[in-house]
């Protein structure tokens, strides 16, 4: 009576590409997931840097060598863009959840706004870091 019948439910197909043309609304949405997952690299590096600083000077010098190498700076700058993009994406989720800006022209502008906004905020972050 209580045991529901087990059924193999169909899996939803990956829509972008074979079924849907890429659009700014879908691409800006999937970029939230990519940036969110990618940020684990920066968080691992941040944690490694703090951990090494707490352990010993040789350990810190080792991690800091990587963190300030060209690859390290590339990770920091890419992660700054990713974190700002992901944050703007979150704000867009809050706006959508409130039922705002759901019409297609505005939604498409919001998608472009996230790419432009993240780039502007990254430039500001670099200026804060350098000055």
């Amino acid at each position: 009576m209580s045991a529901p019948k087990r059924v193999e439910r169909p899996l939803s197909p990956f829509m972008i590409g074979p079924y849907y043309r890429p659009q700014i609304t879908s691409i800006s949405s999937i970029m939230i997931r990519i940036t969110g997952l990618g940020l684990i690299v920066a968080i691992a590096l941040i944690t490694a840097l703090i951990f090494a600083a707490a352990v010993s000077k040789p350990a810190f010098d080792c991690v800091n060598w990587f963190a300030t190498s060209w690859l390290g700076w590339l990770i920091w700058i890419a992660s700054a863009w990713a974190v700002w993009y992901h944050l703007l994406g979150g704000v867009r989720h809050f706006l959508y959840d409130a039922g705002k800006f759901m019409d297609i022209p505005t939604a498409e502008k919001l998608g472009w706004g996230m790419f432009i906004g993240a780039t502007v905020l990254t430039v500001i972050t670099i200026i804060i870091a350098v000055v």
Partner: peptide
Amino acid sequence: GWALLFIVPVFVVVLARTIGHGYEHV
């Protein structure tokens, strides 16, 4: 997400001012 909206911008600024500095500074 709402919590991080306030935490992340401040943390990014702190981090931007810290990365690249030496052992004692960090």
